[in-house]
């Protein structure tokens, strides 16, 4: 979503993005002329008249589980967004009985929060698991 019109979205997709992604952008490119939606999400820059790089992960109930906001010159890292979605999906499927510690990715150890874990995370999780 950006403040550009759907006509500009079409030209950007057809003339440039479709050269990067075969078949073009596979999801809707939304238009927010005037920044009303961006304002509600807190990412519209009124002075510049554009939206910052805001990314929101919304669950099947319509609840925001995560967001990240960057100023325009720095791009996102899509793999990190996917990792977060996988983590939120795991937590949801476990009905909140499991949690994903720092550095978690699919296949790695999850934690089961409860009285038995208090003071004993160090026994199952180590700092090198954060970045391996």
């Amino acid at each position: 979503m950006s403040v550009d019109s759907v006509f500009v979205h079409k030209m950007w997709n057809d003339k440039e993005l479709s050269k990067m992604v075969e078949g073009g952008v596979p999801f809707p490119m939304l238009s927010d002329g005037g920044g009303k939606v961006g304002t509600a999400y807190g990412i519209y820059d009124e002075d510049a008249g554009v939206e910052n790089r805001g990314r929101f992960i919304i669950d099947p109930e319509g609840v925001i589980q995560a967001y990240e906001v960057l100023t325009p010159p720095v791009g996102r890292h899509v793999a990190e967004s996917l990792r977060q979605i996988q983590a939120f999906q795991l937590v949801r499927e476990s009905k909140g009985t499991e949690a994903t510690p720092s550095g978690w990715k699919p296949g790695k150890l999850t934690l089961k929060p409860g009285p038995d874990l208090v003071g004993r995370v160090w026994e199952v999780w180590s700092v090198d698991m954060e970045s391996d």
Binding site: M1, S2, V3, E51, N52, R53, F56, I57, R76
Partner: peptide
């Protein structure tokens, strides 16, 4: 699950 992304501008 929905990912909503805002960005400064096309092109």
């Amino acid at each position: 699950w929905v990912v909503l992304c805002f960005y400064p501008g096309d092109f």
